[in-house]
Design a protein around this nucleic acid. Structure first.
Length: 256
DNA sequence: ATGGTGGATGGTCCA
């Protein structure tokens, strides 16, 4: 089973790239973030024409998440049960048989100490509560998406220069790690122990050319599912295309 | 120190 998560940075701007990704990898499940479009305007046909079902939760201009899958999702939920302040469309979940999928777009947080940073922390706390109330560590659960956090210094280009700034600060890392401790394995990291492997590069200053990136897009699996993970890669070639997303897809294979 | 880029939008905001 091929599983992909990708922050597309606008589904309309990235339509041809998404088509290329679907043709290259033929994912069974494809989770998207930052679709940036209201549900009525989402290009569903791109998926339905290729035999995918698609579940969406979008808004105008910002945020927005979606899941395309060869088999239809059941039990689809959108957002937290009780939305927190400034609730935005950043979470969609569903199930295929025994497999549970939770696709998230954690707020960026702008800068450590800013209002948006505290919203980011609050959102992560709400996510933890949501997971505790709706899942068990013994479930076959995958949580994926743009977490906007590089979990460790190894996930950051020149961490000494970044020095605890946004996406790498101790407080957001701790909040995220509290969720991981509930029962997740970072399956990319369990298959790769080296540094220099990133999923996001700033559009500015030739960051991709210099591999000045961050590993902020993740696939986390509970132990029963992580045991079935055969491999995880970053599809860097999607970042090399003309007018790319600033993120590259993360592709995981599970033997289900 | 600043600005550099990109998407949605039609001002700026967000990343």
């Amino acid at each position: 089973m091929i599983f992909i998560t990708w922050n597309v940075n606008s589904i309309t701007a990235r339509q041809s790239h998404v088509e290329q990704l679907l043709e290259s990898y033929e994912p069974d499940i494809f989770c998207m973030q930052e679709t940036k479009i209201i549900d009525d305007k989402f290009p569903r046909e791109m998926f339905t024409q290729r035999g995918y079902e698609v579940e969406i939760y979008g808004e105008k201009s910002y945020n927005g998440v979606a899941i395309a899958s060869k088999e239809a999702l059941s039990g689809v939920t959108r957002g937290f049960k009780v939305e927190i302040a400034a609730g935005s469309r950043r979470l969609i979940a569903g199930e295929i048989g025994d497999l549970k999928v939770l696709n998230i777009y954690i707020p960026n947080g702008q800068a450590v100490g800013s209002e948006k940073y505290y919203y980011k922390l609050e959102w992560i706390c709400a996510l933890k509560k949501h997971i505790e109330e709706n899942y068990k560590p013994s479930d076959q659960l995958v949580v994926c998406g743009d977490f906007n956090i590089a979990p460790e210094d190894i996930d950051v280009y020149r961490p000494q220069e970044w020095n605890g700034a946004i996406m790498a600060s101790a407080e957001e890392r701790k909040h995220l790690n509290d969720i991981k401790d509930w029962g997740f394995i970072d399956v990319f990291r369990s298959h790769h122990d080296e540094g220099g492997l990133y999923t996001w590069w700033d559009y500015q200053r030739g960051a991709f050319r210099r591999n000045a990136g961050f590993r902020i897009d993740h696939v986390w699996a509970t132990q029963p599912l992580a045991d079935k993970c055969a491999g995880v890669i970053v599809a860097r070639e999607m970042r090399e295309l003309e007018r790319p997303s600033d993120h590259a897809p993360v592709v995981a294979e599970f033997e289900l």
